[in-house]
Nucleic acid binder design. Structure first.
Lengths: 258, 258
DNA sequence: CGTCCACCCTGACCTAAGGTCAAGGTCAAG
DNA sequence: CTTGACCTTGACCTTAGGTCAGGGTGGACG
């Protein structure tokens, strides 16, 4: 047995695993120490110090690729670099904190994804007796609308608020939701579509789509995604939507075509 | 062109890269959407929602492997899991903060690595006119001693404090430091070793090594590492150490043998 | 003296969460 | 009819190590 610690002792000293020490050797961060007669690495004090330095920086999140240069420059550059590392660490901490808070809001409601005004609309839906499933669908629609077509999101909300204030419209909408279970060829669907279109056309101004939006290249596909959200829930709903859309278009309303 | 967003649009919507979306598909986190006639993926609203959910959790540091199960369980389990994620995030933040503080202390002195008493000894060395190189070597020695042989670290400090209070010893130590530049066969080394050994033997009690320590299996190698630290700085220093050691042993002092 | 166990050696492959490169198909515009 | 921006797949690269395989060493026990 020659002088110096074995790799296991050195690793324990620095608080890392043997594998990590060998990894540092391969990267050239810590020079390979002398070997004893049986080929074992034998660590002297300078090796241990270097190991602890590397390990401290690595623990603070400095990429291993940078640590070598860092430790081999003059002390004042090193001090500056340390400050830099500290700043990056602070940034990372703030970032994580923000994510954690987002997660917190996510666990306690929609406030993370939607503005207060939209949340109010959703609560109003629930109060009006719409089923949780319907409210969930509307929530998804709002999230999508906000992200995909922000230019008309406010107008969209205004439409919704307006309609919810009209008991006749609320009744028609509920009936539309019930239509899920109807046969797609049920004549009541045609009838309902007419009633809905009439109601909508009573407030033509609310239906206008801003010109700035209509001209965007992918406007149609984005609008389509929002508009046909959850249509897969049933063919009757899809038919109802198609009929209303056709009636509005026939009345001269020009909205994105898919 | 059929309905739905292309992968590029979907990725932009979720704030990730195209590659990331495909990665999620391969892991089964987000189901593959329908393809259009040319084989392009077409994303509908439900795909987009799923994508945002995955991306939110992944952004919070949840391993991708867990996200699938997480999103496919009932809402209350999900809420519990979210809380768990939040807790882990908090832990991680605290950990990083602690590391950052360590780094801060590291940039501003030795207080991170050594107790106040040791720092005082180092300052005293500097005040007594020892060269910065010598002080640096002693600092390293103390760091090693504290980590490798904590059982005798306090005794070690006491010895140092005692010696520094003796001007004769200080003078001999400085001379020993000068010996670096001497030839290893210089007769002055022999002479200096005798003087040092005499001084040391005048306070035999200080030299005793606790029995509890001597009996530890790897005591010798640890002690050796500390004792021969920086000996590679010059063969004359090594010779001086060896001579002093031999003289002390000859006088009946029994310290760990390497 | 043999055997056991803990430790050491090297080298090849695996992980997460994608990134990069290559080679080719598709689409709208000029 | 070509250009450029998009899409497709597949194979390999990255960070910071971990795991496995196959084999050598050193000290303790019987």
């Amino acid at each position: 047995m020659a002088g110096g610690l074995t790799i296991g002792q050195a690793a324990a000293f620095a608080g890392v695993t043997i594998k990590t020490v060998r990894h540092y050797h391969r990267l050239g961060l810590v020079a390979e120490p002398e070997r004893d007669t049986s080929g074992y690495r034998r660590y002297r004090s300078t090796d241990l110090l270097r190991l602890v330095q590397v390990r401290t920086l690595a623990g603070a999140g400095v990429p291993l690729a940078e640590i070598g240069d860092l430790l081999d420059t003059d002390p004042e550059t090193f001090a500056g670099a340390l400050d830099d590392v500290r700043r990056r660490l602070t940034e990372r901490i703030e970032d994580l904190t923000a994510r954690r808070d987002t997660l917190h809001r996510l666990a306690h409601g929609d406030r993370a994804l939607l503005p207060d005004r939209a949340c109010a609309v959703l609560e109003r839906l629930a109060d009006l007796g719409f089923s949780p499933d319907y409210v969930a669908g509307q929530r998804e629609g709002l999230v999508l609308a906000r992200a995909l077509i922000p230019e008309i999101f406010d107008g969209f909300l205004t439409q919704l608020e307006h309609r919810l204030a009209d008991p006749g419209f609320v009744a028609l909408t509920k009936r539309g939701w019930d239509a899920r279970s109807w046969d797609p060829d049920d004549p009541r669907i045609e009838e309902l579509a007419s009633a809905l279109a009439d109601k909508l056309l009573a407030d033509r101004a609310l239906l206008a789509v801003p010109t700035g939006f209509r001209n965007r290249a992918d406007a149609a596909s984005r609008y389509g995604v929002v508009n046909h959200h959850r249509e897969d829930q049933g063919p009757s709903i899809a038919r109802l939507n198609t009929l209303v859309e056709a009636k509005l278009r026939a009345a001269g309303i020009d909205f994105p075509h898919r």
